[in-house]
């Protein structure tokens, strides 16, 4: 298996499929694609923990499993705690000489609900204790598994079944929780945002994370044609548009130092991204202007952080 993903050649990617076909994801599921790519980057010697959510439902319908790896399903709120426990168990076994020192990757893969709503305290605790594990949040921006209910990760203006658009309501009225910033605020060694529309970038980030010692966090935007109300073949374009409009910037925070992976001299207007999705269809030009303003503010704030660390050279 090649480690050279920056060469950008599909031929060099690990051919082994650890998330096998036959899983029950919807047509055009960005989550299934992201998991497939993450496991390709992680390779062998990986243990995956995942809380309740789409991923659990689609990968393990009784009595089958789509995982070619050891996989643990745990309750909604404690994926990070269980991942920390697995790491602790390996430590204890090694101390008793019952296990060799082979590197084992422990990856917790949760949805946005299991990460930013229900599992947040366990995640924060695991970051604080400094377990050596990678947490990947596959953020599809609502509770898609149970029928598109809003989560704290749902973007402003999106229509979901619990924040419906209508005569009085304009959909979600709060802004998306910035999970990557929350993770970075724990001062952990590696935080990144990624999207399967940029598969090599995503895989490289997973590999960088797994090489780093300590708790790591990757926030991955995954497209959901069912919940977003978009065509199934458009999901890769939508991911790119989310990045190009600045709605979901791709960046890394390595030991507190911000690094922008995709910089644009000028951002595309947010309507390019919003117009393909029926969850934003009801938005009026005034609402879109609010989103545009907020996106630009956040983009500038991020750029300032990047510039700041460039100048001071803080490591």
């Amino acid at each position: 298996m090649s480690e050279q993903f920056s060469v950008y050649v599909p031929k060099l990617i690990n051919k082994q499929e650890d998330f096998v076909h036959g899983h029950r994801a919807c047509q055009g599921c960005g989550l299934a694609l992201a998991v497939r790519l993450i496991l390709k980057a992680a390779g062998k010697n990986t243990i995956v923990v995942s809380p309740t959510g789409c991923l659990e439902i689609i990968s393990t319908p009784y009595p089958q499993s789509a995982w070619n790896l050891p996989w643990v399903h745990v309750a909604f709120e404690n994926a990070a705690a269980v991942a920390g426990g697995i790491e602790g168990a390996f430590k204890a076994l090694r101390a008793k000489n019952k296990k060799d020192n082979k590197k084992i990757n422990i990856i917790a893969i949760g949805g946005d609900g299991g990460t930013s709503d229900i599992g947040l305290q366990a995640l924060s605790g695991a970051f604080e204790r400094g377990h050596d594990f990678l947490y990947v949040c596959l953020d599809n921006e609502a509770y898609m598994n149970t029928g598109i209910q809003r989560s704290s990760s749902t973007p402003f203006g999106a229509s979901t079944t619990t924040s419906p658009s209508g005569a009085v309501s304009m959909g979600q009225i709060t802004w998306k929780k910035n999970m990557a910033a929350i993770a970075a605020a724990h001062n952990i060694p590696y935080v990144a945002t990624a999207c399967p529309s940029y598969p090599f970038d995503l895989m490289e980030k997973v590999q960088t994370a797994l090489k780093t010692q300590g708790p790591k966090y990757i926030h991955c935007l995954v497209q959901c044609p069912t919940g977003w109300g978009c065509a199934t073949d458009l999901i890769i374009r939508l991911g790119s548009l989310a990045v190009e409009t600045g709605i979901f910037p791709l960046y890394e925070v390595i030991n507190g130092k911000y690094k922008l992976n995709m910089d644009f001299p000028k951002l595309r207007p947010v309507t390019d991204y919003l117009k393909f999705q029926s969850r934003f269809r009801h938005l009026k030009p005034a609402d879109i202007a609010i989103i545009q303003k907020r996106v630009e503010q956040e983009w500038q704030a991020l750029k300032q952080k990047v510039e700041c660390f460039k100048k001071t050279g803080v490591k």
Binding site: V20, H21, G22, H23, R24, Q27, S59, T60, P61, P63, Q64, S65, A66, W67, N68, L69
Partner: peptide
């Protein structure tokens, strides 16, 4: 309960969905 074999979901052909 039962132990599921790794990758046993392959037995389910999703090709009929399209």
């Amino acid at each position: 309960g039962l132990t599921t074999k790794a990758g046993s979901a392959q037995a389910y052909k999703t090709g009929s969905w399209r």
